[in-house]
Nucleic acid binder design. Sequence first.
DNA 1: TGTCCACGTCT
DNA 2: AAGACGTGGAC
Length: 328
Amino acid sequence: MRESNIPNKILKWYDNNKRILPWRKKTSTKNREYFTLVSEFMLQQTQVKTVVPYFEKFIKNFPNLKSLASANDQKILKHWEGLGYYSRARNLKKTAIKILKEFNGNLPKDVEKLMSLPGIGEYTSRSILAIAHNRPYIPMDGNVERIIKRIFLLKEEKEISKENLIKKKAFFSYSKRSNDYAQAIMEIGALVCKPISPSCSICPLTLNCKAFKKKDFLVKSKNKLNKTKYFEACIYRHKNKYLLIKNKKFNFLKNLVIFPMNEINEKKFKYSLSKKINIKMSNMNMKIIISENNKLKKTRDSLLVDKSNINKHILPSFTKKIFNSLQN
DNA sequence: TGTCCACGTCT
DNA sequence: AAGACGTGGAC
């Protein structure tokens, strides 16, 4: 093995350092396809550590494509509760159905067919090809992108264009052990070549890394300034029952259960004497007044939920946070 | 406290 | 094609 062979260095590191993860267990081809599908959906925008317990529970309840395709939507969502980006769960079911109907229950083996499935885009299609089908693809996720930028010390707008990154990615091409190799690169990104304070002393690629040589790790600050929006949450309580509603009003957490809310202006928020809490959402910071004892009419979408029964509903963390703030 | 991760997918 | 969609943990 030549010292300069990057794929070999990466794989050797992986063999010695990979995490034991439930979707990496040796299993049948069919299971591997299904495990890859489920885990990759869960891993979109979500860290490994968060996904692990969800994956295990999900697989127990929906052990194969068929059971998932025929499962009740609410039951699927219940097992997604707290994971966020709930359209992933809805799309996963649609994809399971489509695979059974249109592809005879076989996970497709080319990018176009995979991308035709709901919830599968460029990243996931390539990760499935590599991980489930052992094809020589390297999916471009945040980890891979960061590694490429550092290895080649890419900083200019032009250099970090998508096309250029894909071109540079070819530098890592390798045709064997594609399953391990794709996961290995992402694993190095997650465990070693971290966004902040990378662990260069244990990195197998330091000799190949321009960022390391220049001591310039491109710690980026995108400064995506999230806007702040103001809301009033109306808490109607009767003894131990709370009024919740199925959200049709706001674009976030669509069709999930929330406390009734209105958007308000900054002034009203500022001068309110009610309890206030902050909740971060994906693209905004929410500042919320907790107004208790409001009189509310029951509507078609409202439900009166007993405190002890509250977990029977699918509650996004957003709702749980507000609920918890009431208990203090 | 506030910022970042977080290119992932869909609209 | 810019913005929407959740969450939690590191720092």
